[in-house]
C-alpha cells in the first residue's frame, strides 16, 4: 500500500492519520500527549505502523499542531503547517462548500471562515480557556461522569439552566450554585454546553460572518450536547465530519500529498524513527537578561534543532522554507 502520513501534535492530544493515494483517511490514531511530545510521536508512529500492512510505502509526511516543528524533525516531515490552515484544508475536502469551521480542541478553540474553498478570515481564542475541551473534562471529572457520556446526558435535558460562560471561574461557581439548589444533572450539563457556545460565539466568533454549511470539528465535537447547543444558537444544521477528531492531522497529510505530487521525494525517516534515540534538553542562554530557555533536540547524540531564543542566535534558520 502507498500513502501519506499526517501528524498533529497538540498540547493535549497527538493524532496521526494514514491517507490513501486517493486522499482518503484510512487509519487514525488518537493519543494523549501527556506533556511528552517526542514520546507521543514515537508511540503514535509505532501504533499506526501496527495498523498498516507490512509493506506500506509512505510517500509524504505533514506535521501540524503546536508541536509541529518537533514532530516534523522527529519524523522527517515534507510539510510543516500551522493548525489553522491544516484544519481548513481537511474541512474543505471532506465537506466541499463549507463556509464556517468551528473547531474546539483540548486547549484552544478557533473559527475559520471559508469562501469558495479559500480561508478568508479566522480567529483563535487568545485570553480565555473557558470553552475548551479541558474545561469540559475538568467539570465532568468534578461531577464524576465519564466525558464520553457527557453529551448523551446533556441531551436528556428539557430545561437547560442558565450558567455564566464568560469565564471558567464564573462558570464553575455558577454550576456549583445550581447543583446545590437541586437542579437536575442533565439540565446543568446542557446549561454548561449553552454557556460554552455563547462564550465561543461572542469571544472567538466575534464579528465573524457565520453562515451555512457549518462544520464542527476537534475533540469536543464528540460531545452531542455541544452540537445541539450550537444548532440552537446558530439556527442551522451543524455537520460533524467523519474523522472530526483528527482533522488537523488529516489536513497535514493532504498538504503533504499535494506537496510531493510536484515531484519532491519525501524526507520521511521511516518508521524506524519510532525507535531512534531522541533527546530534548534545554539550557538558559546568558547572552542577555532575557535568559531565553533554548530547547535543543538531539538525535543519537548530535544536535538536529534548537529553538526558543528570541534573537535567533541559536535557532536553526529554516523557518522560511517551512512556510512557503
Amino acid at each position: 500500500m502507498i500513502g501519506f502520513l499526517g501528524l498533529d501534535v497538540g498540547s493535549v492530544s497527538t493524532n496521526l492519520v494514514f491517507l490513501s493515494e486517493k486522499g482518503r483517511v484510512l487509519e487514525s490514531v488518537y493519543l494523549r500527549t501527556n506533556g511528552r511530545p517526542i514520546q507521543a510521536v514515537q508511540r503514535g508512529l509505532r501504533q499506526i505502523q501496527g495498523l498498516l500492512p507490512p509493506k506500506t510505502v509512505i510517500r509524504g509526511v505533514g506535521a501540524t499542531g503546536s508541536g509541529r516543528n518537533l514532530a516534523g524533525i522527529i519524523a522527517g516531515a515534507d510539510v510543516i503547517k500551522n493548525e489553522i490552515t491544516s484544519h481548513a484544508v481537511a474541512a474543505n475536502r471532506m465537506v466541499p462548500g463549507v463556509r464556517t469551521v468551528l473547531e474546539i480542541g483540548g486547549q484552544d478553540s478557533k473559527i475559520i471562515i471559508l469562501r469558495d474553498g479559500v480561508v478568508v478570515d479566522f480567529a483563535m481564542n487568545t485570553v480565555c480557556a473557558a470553552g475548551t475541551g479541558s474545561f469540559l473534562d475538568q467539570q465532568a471529572a468534578r461531577l464524576n461522569i465519564e466525558i464520553e457520556n457527557f453529551g448523551e446526558l446533556a441531551l436528556k435535558s428539557r430545561a437547560p439552566v442558565r450558567i455564566a460562560g464568560r469565564c471558567a471561574v464564573f462558570a464553575e461557581s455558577d454550576m456549583i450554585h445550581k447543583q446545590q439548589m437541586g437542579y437536575d444533572l442533565p439540565d446543568i450539563l446542557a446549561g454548561l454546553c449553552e454557556a460554552l457556545v455563547r462564550n465561543y460565539l461572542s469571544n472567538v466568533g466575534k464579528g465573524k460572518d457565520i453562515s451555512a454549511p457549518v462544520v464542527f470539528q476537534g475533540g469536543v465535537a464528540a460531545n452531542r450536547g455541544m452540537k445541539a447547543a450550537f444548532e440552537r444558537a446558530l439556527q442551522t444544521e451543524v455537520i460533524i465530519p467523519p474523522h472530526f477528531d483528527v482533522m488537523g492531522a488529516a489536513g497535514a497529510a493532504m498538504l503533504a500529498r499535494d506537496f510531493v505530487s510536484r515531484g519532491a521525494p519525501t524526507r520521511f525517516k521511516g518508521f524506524g524513527a519510532a525507535e531512534a534515540g531522541f533527546e530534548a534538553g534545554s539550557f538558559e542562554c546568558g547572552g542577555c537578561p532575557n535568559l531565553c530557555e533554548v530547547v535543543e533536540i538531539r538525535e543519537e547524540g548530535s544536535v538536529i534543532a534548537r529553538w526558543g531564543d528570541r534573537c535567533g542566535r541559536w535557532s536553526v534558520r529554516a523557518a522560511r522554507e517551512n512556510i512557503s
Binding site: K81, N82, E83, I84, T85, F122, T126, I323
Partner: peptide, 24 residues
C-alpha cells in the same frame, strides 16, 4: 487580524496566527 499582547512570553500562538494569516 487582531493580536493582543500581554505578559506571556511564549510565542508559539503568535507564530501560528501569523503563519495562518500569511497563508490566507
Amino acid at each position: 487580524m487582531t493580536l493582543i499582547v500581554d505578559e506571556q512570553s511564549g510565542d508559539a500562538g503568535l507564530v501560528t496566527r501569523l503563519e495562518a494569516f500569511v497563508d490566507l
